[in-house]
């Protein structure tokens, strides 16, 4: 349904050296799928989300590549065409989405604004729809008459999710929807979200830094590092069959809370500076399986048994040829 082809995003800077936050990303999102996008802060995962939603200002950023939604390339559309597409086909819930409500309007009014802009419905049918959505996110429909400040953080985030679903979009991009909330609220929102996705069959791109969380909700996981997708696999196999050293190291940071003995692990080093681009594999300086070729040649994302992986370790043939 959504195809991203060779997407590059470079933030321009005054010094002239741009920061390439997304570097040649290719993937697709089929209908009715729950796709997780994981990476550390600064790896470009939010930029990728913005890039897909067409939220990047072309004056300040260099964007190249294609984002094709239902056969339409988003980057060839006019502003007006994009406006009609948003909410109806694609909606976004941002990290601080719960603080994006207008503080002086009732929740109800904010839903109605969106619906008015896109359709011609009677007020009563809109109110019915709002009630239906709020119950879907397990809130009392009566809160539609409240102002945003009367709701707790978790309630606001639920409302933001409900709002994103108001016009039956095909794809919802959720950028760190639970990061500002604590674990208990996070758990209940995540349960609610995966239930909702199963019933309503829209597609979700779930962006998060927390691999543990993504593994629980998503049915496919993409791991991003320094602007590139390094591994792309079904969630059910990535636990046992992670191939990229970064994914392995990231999984090592999680422990089973039910284990008899626990010890925490980290990944030594820090992600590379993306100013002026990266030569070779961006993970090479932190990688424990590093080879000479990793510093000179950027590994491409290639098919492996269960999915896709970008690492020289799994392309032995090519390495020896060189």
């Amino acid at each position: 349904m959504l195809e991203v082809k060779d997407l590059w995003v470079t933030y321009k800077s005054r010094s002239g050296i741009g920061v390439s936050a997304v570097r040649g990303v290719d993937f697709d999102i089929p209908d009715n799928s729950f796709l997780g996008l994981v990476g550390e802060s600064g790896c470009g995962k939010s930029t990728l989300g913005f890039g897909i939603a067409g939220l990047l200002d072309p004056k300040r950023n260099d964007v190249s590549g294609k984002v094709i939604l239902d056969g339409q390339d988003l980057y060839t559309l006019s502003k007006e065409q994009l406006r009609t597409l948003r909410w109806e086909k694609l909606s976004v819930v941002l990290q601080g989405g719960m603080n994006a409500f207008n503080p002086v309007l009732k929740i109800k009014q904010q839903f109605i604004d969106v619906m008015r802009a896109h359709s011609n419905q009677s007020t009563s049918s809109m109110v019915d729809r709002i009630a239906e959505l709020l119950s879907a996110v397990q809130l009392d429909p009566r809160i539609m008459d409240s102002y945003p400040h009367e709701l707790s953080g978790g309630m606001k985030q639920r409302t933001a999710i409900a709002l994103s679903l108001v016009l039956h979009p095909r794809l919802v991009i959720l950028d760190e929807p639970t990061t500002a909330l604590d674990v208990v609220v996070q758990r209940s929102i995540i349960n609610m979200l995966s239930e909702l996705q199963r019933l309503q069959k829209f597609s979700v791109l779930f962006i998060s830094h927390d691999l543990g969380l993504v593994l629980e909700v998503a049915n496919r996981v993409m791991v991003m590092y320094s602007g590139q997708i390094v591994e792309d696999k079904p969630a059910s196999v990535i636990m046992d069959d992670a191939q990229h050293p970064y994914t392995k190291a990231l999984l090592g940071c999680y422990v089973n809370p039910h284990a008899e003995n626990v010890s925490l692990k980290g990944i030594p080093g820090t992600p590379p500076d993306l100013r002026g681009g990266v030569q070779g594999c961006p993970f090479a300086p932190r990688c424990s399986f590093v080879m000479d070729v990793c510093f000179t040649k950027t590994p491409q994302l290639v098919k492996c048994e269960n999915g896709l992986v970008a690492c020289h370790l799994y392309r032995q043939d090519e390495v020896t040829v060189e």
């Binding site: 674990v183 758990r187 543990g212 969380l213 593994l215 629980e216 999680y254």
Partner: peptide, 18 residues
């Protein structure tokens, strides 16, 4: 117990019996 069960746990898939 609620706090504990709320921890994101990638191992949850593995031990379904929990």
């Amino acid at each position: 117990q609620l706090l504990f069960s709320s921890i994101p746990n990638p191992y949850r898939h593995k031990n379904k019996e929990s």
